[in-house]
Design a protein around this nucleic acid. Structure first.
Lengths: 182, 182, 182, 182
DNA sequence: GATGAATGAGGATTCATTCAT
DNA sequence: GATGAATGAATCCTCATTCAT
């Protein structure tokens, strides 16, 4: 299958990058994981960097938690999901974060993914915010940025420290933002 | 001369790693930046990994913003500082984050640094919390974790997106946590 | 082409190791002698040690003087051959002898080669021994070991000393063992 | 002590070379074994090769089994001694054998040592030979060369094969040469 | 005499990339 | 499309040697 091999390579890249990290991943590793010859990787991708970019794009399109429906309901579901340890998307995101400063395509892809997430969050925040005193809708984007920041930062702490209590941190964040306020 | 070279190598490593990233940094690069022969790096550090660990430890000891005095005052100062774009410590922290899953020493060093920061934050939070209804002091660690998460997550967004408004996000976070509440 | 390169590398290794010795032989030297790029050596052999082992095995299989036919006739032919100075197999054998204590594969390969040689010699010795008084067939292995020892030891002396008279030593050994005895 | 250090270095070189082999021995290793700084080695010996030569000379002068007295008695004692597994001199001799083709000083030192040994053996052989029919005293040097060859070759086989029966081989050799003959 | 920091050439090995099949 | 042999530059690391102290 023509494009089948291409996809297998990209998916293999996501898996290998997630588990070994960029610095320790060779094109040969990815080819082996995909079950193809090393040469075929360069048939589809001119350089290793191109492959990495494709992998990040794939991950942002396929692995990122997707949601629909009522914003607040979505927000609550997202918070619950964030308490779970297995987050393949965040795994790769962290690996790619170190690449972003020197690779525009990676940077922009990550950025688009963040923007999308913040957009979802913003909707939920606007709904909650309506009941807050002293807050205007124009502050919603900034609060969404804080929300995204908290989610990522909590994930990082949990990743570094097996003893970290993600659930407590997320609950505290939820209480800070969604709790009553006057 | 003796230990002077060693320190110059470590400091050079911090600089080069911060700007080029781990994957693109060679021992030779670091030696050149330090102004010593490549062989000398391995005189002081058995492996590249050992040097990286030393660099992370150095950065966590020397580069991390240090603070003292009144917790709340410190907190306000920290928030202001976080608005500025140049954060050498966060730079290296992000690079090392991708190494942490596969390097225990790096992971533990980063973790210690986070724990220290959260400790400072917790003091400020306890002070503020006293005036909050419906919150107990036992929730302070979780809120401190959220605060650290927000600071790091905001920095990341600013790093990826030159147009990101760090100040707005930080102000929003401050308002969320330090604003009045009843 | 495929396996052809592999063999050329092994043969080149035998040549270079024989003439330069292990300590002075680099992988690059072997690649140059084989007429291939340095990287290709590691395509076929994971480590330099693996290549050396392959070279020793090749030498033991291809370079060692092979013989067939009447044992006594073979023995006489072998003795004559040992008088000649050019002995590519012994050359490599001596080089590898220094490696054997620290490399099991080398050690076992050399050992197998010695065992084979002693086996041939033993046949000749059994035939001669039949006419000896006071000797039993069960002593044949020990005498074969002595014969192998003498052949190697004589070669070594000739190798160290250009003035050494190998022929005289070999004739003396032949007289000791194959001369009449009563 | 001035020359004390020098000797400690040479003795350390003999030990390290014997156990690690030439290729795996660095000047630093030897300095460490001798308990001196690496720089001091080059105060006494211009190059590593010079040190190796000194080590071989020392070993040939100090480690080689020395003997005196009645030739035949000496020969018997030598044969008995050769049955024992621990032969520090042969150990180093084998290591140096691989160096000899490319190092004249090593070659000549080894050669002198062999010549000395053969000289001892020759005396014993002449004594025994007097009772042999069909042998002339002028054949004594060749027989001594065979004797040396057998001793070394037997040692080599025992070194390569833990299961090798050195005693049986040496007894067989003794019977071949010192047994009755008419 | 003695130290050990410093040098830099050279070693084994890895790996992105190319290309004939 | 697909293979995998082949390339060669670059990497980490070792080590004999030098030299200021």
């Amino acid at each position: 299958m023509a494009t089948d091999s291409r996809r297998r390579i990209v998916e293999a890249a996501v898996r290998v990058l997630s588990s070994q990290g960029y610095a320790a991943t060779s094109v040969k590793d990815i080819a082996a994981e995909a079950g193809v010859a090393p040469g075929l990787v360069h048939y589809y991708f001119a350089t290793k960097e191109d492959l990495i970019v494709a992998a990040v794009e794939y991950a942002c399109a396929e692995l990122r938690p997707r949601v629909e429906g009522d914003p607040i309901e979505f927000a609550r579901a997202g918070l619950e999901q964030a308490k779970r340890p297995e987050q393949p998307f965040w795994r790769l995101f962290t690996e790619m974060l170190a690449l972003a400063p020197r690779n525009q395509a990676v940077r922009e892809t990550l950025l688009r993914s963040i923007a999308l997430d913040r957009g979802y969050m913003e909707q939920a925040i606007r709904a909650v915010m309506a009941q807050w005193e002293g807050w205007g809708q124009d502050e919603a984007p900034a609060v969404a940025a804080v929300a995204w920041a908290a989610m990522f930062g909590i994930w990082v702490q949990g990743e570094l420290d097996p003893g970290f209590d993600r659930a407590a941190a997320i609950d505290a964040f939820a209480k800070l933002t969604m709790g009553e306020r006057r």
